[in-house]
Simulated scan of single mutants.
Amino acid sequence: MWTIQDAKNKFSSVVDAALAGTPQEVTRRGKPAVVVMSASEYHHLLAEAQRSRGSFIEHLLAFPGEDIEGAQVEPRSVEF
């Protein structure tokens, strides 16, 4: 894990380690901020996430609409 200052000072080392297959975590003020990883690993993760995600239509069809009772709303009286 790198502090942001160390990562800036040794950016080539951060990139080399990420290209070697080890994602590099960078912190800001002691809290995790970013992860530097190789572009190929990023694209692999992105493709995997897109494959495992269903379509929006599948999401809508899976909605349990029949099991949920609608709210009983009555209009209120408004005087002008």
Results as ranks from 00 to 15, higher is better:
S40Q: 08
S38D: 06
S38I: 04
Q24L: 02
E79R: 13
Q24D: 02
R29T: 04
R28F: 11
L45A: 15
A18L: 05
S38M: 01
V35K: 08
K10M: 03
E69P: 05
A18K: 02
R76V: 13
G30T: 00
I68Y: 05
R76D: 06
A17M: 11
V36E: 00
R51V: 06
G70W: 09
V34Q: 06
V35W: 04
A49E: 09
E41F: 04
I57F: 07
I4E: 13
V14H: 04
N9G: 11
E25P: 02
A47Y: 06
K31E: 12
M37A: 05
F56I: 08
T3H: 04
D67M: 09
L60A: 09
D67H: 12
V15G: 01
S13G: 15
F63L: 14
S12N: 10
L45M: 13
I68P: 02
M1R: 07
G65T: 07
E79L: 12
E41Y: 04
Q5H: 09
A71S: 13
A20C: 05
R53M: 13
P75K: 10
S12G: 10
S13Q: 15
P75R: 11
D67Y: 09
A39C: 02
E58M: 06
S12M: 07
I68W: 01
T27E: 14
L60T: 06
Q5A: 12
V78Y: 15
H43M: 14
E25H: 11
N9C: 01
W2H: 06
A18S: 11
V78E: 14
S55R: 03
D16H: 05
L19S: 07
H44T: 11
E41M: 12
A71V: 05
N9R: 10
A47E: 12
A62I: 00
G21E: 06
Q72S: 13
Y42H: 14
A20K: 11
T3E: 07
E58Y: 00
I57E: 11
E74A: 13
R28D: 08
R28P: 00
D16R: 13
V34E: 04
S52R: 14
D16Y: 03
V36D: 01
S13L: 15
P75I: 01
G21C: 07
V73Y: 06
F80Y: 09
F80G: 04
A7P: 01
Q5S: 08
M37Y: 02
G30I: 04
M37R: 07
A39E: 15
S40K: 04
D6L: 03
V15T: 07
A39V: 14
P23E: 04
R51W: 00
P64R: 12
M37P: 02
V78T: 08
A49R: 14
A20I: 06
A33Y: 15
A18Q: 07
L61R: 15
P32R: 10
A49N: 11
A71I: 02
E79K: 11
E66N: 12
V26T: 00
I4C: 04
G54W: 00
F80N: 02
F80V: 01
M37Q: 10
V36M: 00
N9I: 01
F56M: 09
I57G: 03
E25R: 09
Q72T: 15
H59Q: 14
L60G: 02
E41D: 15
